[in-house]
């Protein structure tokens, strides 16, 4: 009787986990590849929501709270970077992702906003998009920058790729609107 119970319990576990695994695999097949990852910190939830709402609707985007790495094991950071690098563009909001992912090797387009830190750079293209008036510490004279006051200031995709820094006049155009335009031009040039 005991043996029967144990065997039954074992197969219940096998059945449960097989079901979960199959369900998961089925789900993962239908999930579209993420084109844009927005990486934010817990405190920046409001800004993240605004940015996600501003992004072009024809682009698949996901947001990731970088503080969730506290729940992960010691390989969590690397797994996060692995996923980020599969996307076409990564957006870091604020200093915190820059600090928590320091040393990360980013091999996709990288857009940094709300932070003038330059501790992480992409091997492909790194663009800072900052509001006018922020202190631009660490940006040298050789930095290619442009002041954006209206949508047309962004120029073509090719023009954009030559830039390192966009300074946004928020009195005339919202920061997130500019980011949305950059994302659109980068992913659907």
């Amino acid at each position: 009787m005991i043996a029967l119970q144990q065997r039954t319990a074992k197969w219940i576990w096998v059945f449960l986990f097989s079901s979960i695994l199959l369900f998961t695999l089925a789900q993962s097949k239908v999930q579209a590849e993420t084109e844009v990852y927005v990486v934010y910190a817990g405190k920046g939830n409001l800004g993240k929501n605004k940015l996600m709402a501003a992004l072009p609707k024809n682009i698949s985007a996901k947001a990731f709270n970088i503080n969730f790495l506290a729940f992960a094991d010691y390989s969590g950071k690397q797994k996060m970077v692995t996923r980020l690098n599969r996307s076409k563009m990564v957006i870091f909001m604020s200093d915190i992702p820059m600090l928590l992912l320091k040393n990360a090797r980013i091999t996709t387009n990288l857009l940094i906003t709300q932070s003038s830190k330059q501790t992480i750079r992409s091997k492909v293209w790194t663009l800072h998009v900052l509001e006018e008036g922020l202190e631009l510490k660490g940006f040298g004279d050789s930095v290619q920058k442009k002041l954006i006051s209206k949508k047309t200031d962004l120029g073509s995709y090719e023009d954009l790729r030559t830039l390192d820094l966009l300074i946004v006049n928020e009195k005339t155009i919202p920061l997130f609107e500019v980011i949305s335009q950059v994302v659109g031009k980068t992913i659907r040039p």
Partner: peptide, 30 residues
């Protein structure tokens, strides 16, 4: 894939006399 990662940690411990895979698994972001 975008949602599936194969992951392992290979460790040489104890002055290189002990080799272990601390973990080796498939991770699925369902």
């Amino acid at each position: 894939t975008d949602t599936i990662i194969a992951s392992t940690e290979l460790e040489a411990g104890d002055s290189g006399n002990l080799y272990t895979a601390n973990y080796a698994y498939i991770s699925i972001q369902a």
